[in-house]
Amino acid sequence: MFYPNLIRERETIMSEKNLRYSLYLGCVIPNRYPFIEQSIRNTFKELGIELVDMQGASCCPAPGVFRGFDIATWLVIGARNISIAEENEADITLGCNGCYATLLEVNHQLKHDKEKRDMVNKHLAKIGREFKGTIEVKHLIEVLYYDFGIDKLKDYVKIKFPDLRVGVHYGCHIIKDSSHRPWGGEFEEPRFFDELVEITGAKSIDYKDKLMCCGAGGAVRTASLEVSLDFTREKLENMRKVSVDCCMVCCPFCHLQMDLGQMQVNDKFKDIIGESYKLPIIFYNQLLGLAMGMNPGDLGLVAAHDLKGVPPFISIQPFMEKIKEQMV
């Protein structure tokens, strides 16, 4: 269990070191939403946080899907990924709530359960790898909030967007299971992501069932697209009621569900939703980069290709217009 005083201790220890992390990409970021990868790499570079690639990393494997099929496989493949970061001698940072759930949980279980660790290492030995338990796993939101520090981050903000109304979507696994997360056990009303959004001057607008799941996780998107989209429809409706300019996410699977899923909701539920939803979905590093005065073209906000059938499926132009208005 993490407690606030422990967190503060850890924070001071970290601030004395140079920040250097293994960047774990996962599946959706590099293979479907590469503009998120661009925004992560460039904002971290600007902040002076070093990122080391994890050569040969696979799917984490996904906590709802593959953990649900076979826990032993999930542990072993997860441990292989962690072992790559151990070779890098750098803690893992990542931008996906699902990967966070898997790698944090696998790392925690294997560090504390010798029987499991022996089982996993027996398998890993066959490919010449080993889980040593020498690193930690941190969401990039956690790195920005604690390790880099939200106060220091404020000094990097050059432009503020006071007219921007943001619907913050945390996603589930960045907060829960709260006993293994670094937010002091808070799971009903967390504030850390809202605070990170608000340092850009933007307003985090409260909306009904803000912490509700996007509907994609737990293998539900694969099991029943309709059920999963009904979650998304409800979230979109609740955000429309408070008229936000964009939905802010810190997970590519939530991003996919709110973006691609939004297009599918507009199609499948057109008889009940009235007007189609046109809510731009923005990843946190994209907004942060803009506030730091970076070029939108370096933050995955400008598409320099003419490909069809690729994200973003819902235009982010209304968001960009809103930003431009406030830059003048």
Binding site: N31, P34, Q38, M54, Q55, S58, A304, L307
Partner: peptide
Amino acid sequence: KWNIMRESYGVSRVPPTV
């Protein structure tokens, strides 16, 4: 198309993964 898309966003054509 995913490789082309990656390049257009200034990240490596093939990600440093499997």
